[in-house]
Design a protein around this nucleic acid. Structure first.
Length: 410
DNA sequence: AAGTCGTTTCCTGTTT
DNA sequence: GAAACAGGAAACGACT
């Protein structure tokens, strides 16, 4: 079970050197943060620097939500940095410390791999950049020594805190108060909005409609905690998790399909069913494809399509993009108008926009690749349109609102 | 209950 | 070589 402190777990990938933390995920859901409405959490960064950091400037900048810290090197252990990420880091440090850009010998760091960087001595740094090498070395050692991985950015990381309780909504008395206390005791993060309650399991929110079901939910979650993959980003355990939570939703939701409720026996049968059985249920129904796509049979696919809680109504992609364009916190930082009159806009930080879309849809697996696919579908549907190929606009990351999109001219 | 919509996921191939 | 683009195919929840 999660303890009262933030729990951080490292995942490892096979490495010739041993076990090097590669990606991380978190469970920073402590009872302290559990309230009747989902409160703002402290902004965890992908890399956190401890208090004894020698260079407060970097400490501040990495913690600063509006900074450029959200670049890919922050998401990996330096052992796994690519050559570009090493350069990103070099220039990031340089700008952080106001190093005179003309003195930086970036080319000296061009062909280094992550493992090489980790092994480099101060002399190696100085050889590659006689002026700033020592400074880079110190910064890197501090980072290497003092950083620990925590979680992906929360809503308020982007300054876009989504408070689930509507302003003015009476937060108390809470209809679920005793159940909430119990969930708090178990460190399960909860949210209540009006008469709806959700629980956060492994970074996904799941609806619970009946207060009296909470006892069962709690017991079920605790009994199956291992299956939920707490502290694990393993895709198989995640898909197991989704499947289990689908069962949860069917079991505990008080929706119109009352007969869709499963008995305790069914639950215990399903939760104890073998991996093969569960995997079989997930097999894609790919039939009659024109092409014969190369399927990696070793990697079971996640269930495709939307997951529970990913509502469509009022949640359309083009509307969301428009919202971001209207939001000065996002425009021009993450995306901006190229030519407002014709509806042409450009995505500046694709990974952040994808992340924000993922948050909106309660889908932590969202990527720019998927977002852009959805945008291409929107283009087919008429919500977006082709960007004029006049050479006026960049060829990449540029989109345009289409005939079916309304309100963007306002 | 079936059909449709709006994605999401995965994929291959192409362009920048 | 990486990132972005393009689009086929299948899947799936929400909605009608």
């Amino acid at each position: 079970m999660l303890n009262d402190e933030s729990r951080v777990s490292f995942h490892t990938i096979p490495d010739t050197e041993g076990l090097i933390p590669n990606t991380v995920d978190i469970n920073i859901q402590s009872a302290r943060e559990t309230t009747c409405c989902r409160s703002t959490m402290e902004s965890p960064t992908f890399l956190d620097i401890s208090n004894n950091m020698q260079h407060p400037a970097l400490h501040d900048v990495i913690r600063e939500p509006e900074s450029d810290s959200l670049i890919s090197w922050t998401q990996k252990h330096p052992e796994h940095w690519s050559q570009n990420e090493i350069l990103d880091w070099i220039y990031f440090v340089a700008s952080t410390l106001n190093v005179d850009p003309t003195t930086i010998r970036g080319e000296g760091f061009q062909n280094i791999t992550g493992p090489e960087l980790c092994r480099m001595t101060v002399e190696d740094f100085l050889k590659r950049d006689p002026v700033n090498g020592k400074c880079f070395y110190d910064m890197f050692r501090s980072l290497h020594r003092d950083a620990f991985f925590s979680g992906p950015p929360t809503d308020d990381y982007y300054n876009l805190v989504e408070v689930k309780q509507e302003p003015g909504t009476n937060m108390s008395p809470c209809p679920y108060s005793s159940a909430l206390n119990k969930l708090e005791d178990e460190n399960i993060l909860t949210s209540v909005k009006g008469s709806d309650m959700e629980v956060l399991i492994d970074s996904n929110w799941y609806d619970i409609d009946l207060p009296e079901d909470i006892e069962r939910v709690t017991q079920y979650i605790l009994a199956n905690e291992a299956d939920y993959g707490y502290g694990s980003s393993d895709s198989d355990s995640q898909s197991d998790h989704y499947e289990t939570m689908n069962i949860c939703n069917r079991t505990f939701r008080n929706d119109s399909v009352g007969s869709d409720t499963m008995s305790d026996d069914e639950i215990s049968h399903l939760s104890s069913s073998s991996n093969e059985e569960r995997q079989q249920k997930r097999l894609p129904r790919r039939t009659g494809t024109k092409k014969t796509p190369k399927l990696n049979n070793n990697k079971p696919k996640k269930n495709r399509g939307r997951k529970p809680g990913q509502l469509t109504k009022g949640n359309h992609l083009w509307e969301f993009i428009l919202e971001l364009l209207r939001d000065p916190k996002c425009n021009p930082q993450y995306l901006k108008w190229e030519e407002k009159d014709t509806g042409v806009f450009r995505i500046v930080r694709s990974e952040i926009v994808a992340d924000l879309w993922g948050k909106k849809k309660h889908n932590p697996d969202m990527t720019y690749e998927k977002l852009s696919r959805a945008m291409r579908f929107c283009r087919t549907a008429g919500h977006f349109a082709e960007v004029p190929k006049t050479g006026k606009f960049p060829k990449k990351l540029c989109f345009r609102f289409g005939a079916k999109a309304v309100g963007w001219k306002d």
